[in-house]
Design a protein around this nucleic acid. Structure first.
Lengths: 158, 158
DNA sequence: GTTGACTCCGTACTTCGGTACGGCCTTTAG
DNA sequence: CTAAAGGCCGTACCGAAGTACGGAGTCAAC
């Protein structure tokens, strides 16, 4: 009996795509979860984790007791990986991939812009750390030997 | 380590004589854990967490059933916070604060140098993300309206 | 002499993105 | 037919640095 699959998040999910996947997915490349994982370069457990999270649909089609995956799932995993490399979290990716390519350009651009700003603020933080550390190292290298370590002093001094 | 000195093991709550008579090193302000937390700008739970972790000693001195903290603990918490701001983990800080200011200068400098390199590699990663995102945003802003979003296309295209 | 704030202690939970384990079932190759 | 490989499921665990909670005890002020 089929698992009811908690995938009734109807976020206006482009009926076009839903209709096409039924015909396209099945006829391209039938994959087991293991084959899909290998093709996408992730672990089987990762796929199952994405499914639990609602980030990847469980395919409705099965071969015997096993689910059958296709190009749609592979494409989605690839998109997830790319978005991760751009710094998006899985939650953000979920939202991003639910956007409509034509109608939601503003939202996509805003998300990207916001992410840029977050990344840049993090970069500045890290640069501050690096500068402070570099200063201490420089100081350490230019202090004569019998003196206490300027780095450790910087941590402990009042 | 060398700061242990002779302290009375006074478990009875009735003796109040321990207040100022002791000629400790720098036992200036007797603090409860709450006062110490406030002074250090951390939460009480954080202090207790550091103690469990072995990063902060539990003071042997007590007033009644409560532990008494002093300048030493405050200084240590301050040092921990400073080291954290430089990007060190609590484990690393534990090691760092165990170093000897005179004898372990090399080790401190090496740790700082290694941390710098780690930070710089992280910065480069983030810059790559930012550049890729900026490129996409730029692309998005220079694409005519009825076209699909280049950002979303970049994620999903084959 | 009671109230209320504080302390102590142990434990569980948080975020994030997975990874691992164990048991059972199914599929498929030999 | 059988055995190995793989799939399915639920659950626990990882690391990092805490945060939260609950119960019991205690200190101090009024």
């Amino acid at each position: 009996m089929d698992r009811k699959s908690a995938q009734e998040f109807d976020r206006t999910a482009t009926t076009k795509t839903a209709a096409k996947t039924a015909t396209q997915t099945t006829r391209s490349a039938p994959l087991t979860i293991g084959a899909l994982a290998k093709a996408a370069g992730v672990g089987v457990e990762t796929i199952r984790y994405y499914q639990r999270r609602g980030l990847l649909r469980e395919p409705q089609q099965t071969r015997g007791a096993y689910r059958v995956y296709g190009e749609a799932e592979l494409a989605r995993l690839t998109a997830i990986r790319r978005a991760q490399q751009l710094g998006f979290s899985l939650d953000e990716i979920d939202g991003l991939l639910a956007l409509n390519e034509e109608r939601d350009r503003d939202r996509a651009r805003d998300a990207a812009q916001a992410k840029i700003e977050l990344i840049e603020s993090r970069i500045r933080q890290l640069q501050d750390m690096r500068d402070a550390l570099a200063e201490l190292v420089h100081c350490c290298e230019h202090t004569d030997s019998p003196a206490p370590c300027p780095i450790l002093r910087a941590l402990s001094s009042a």
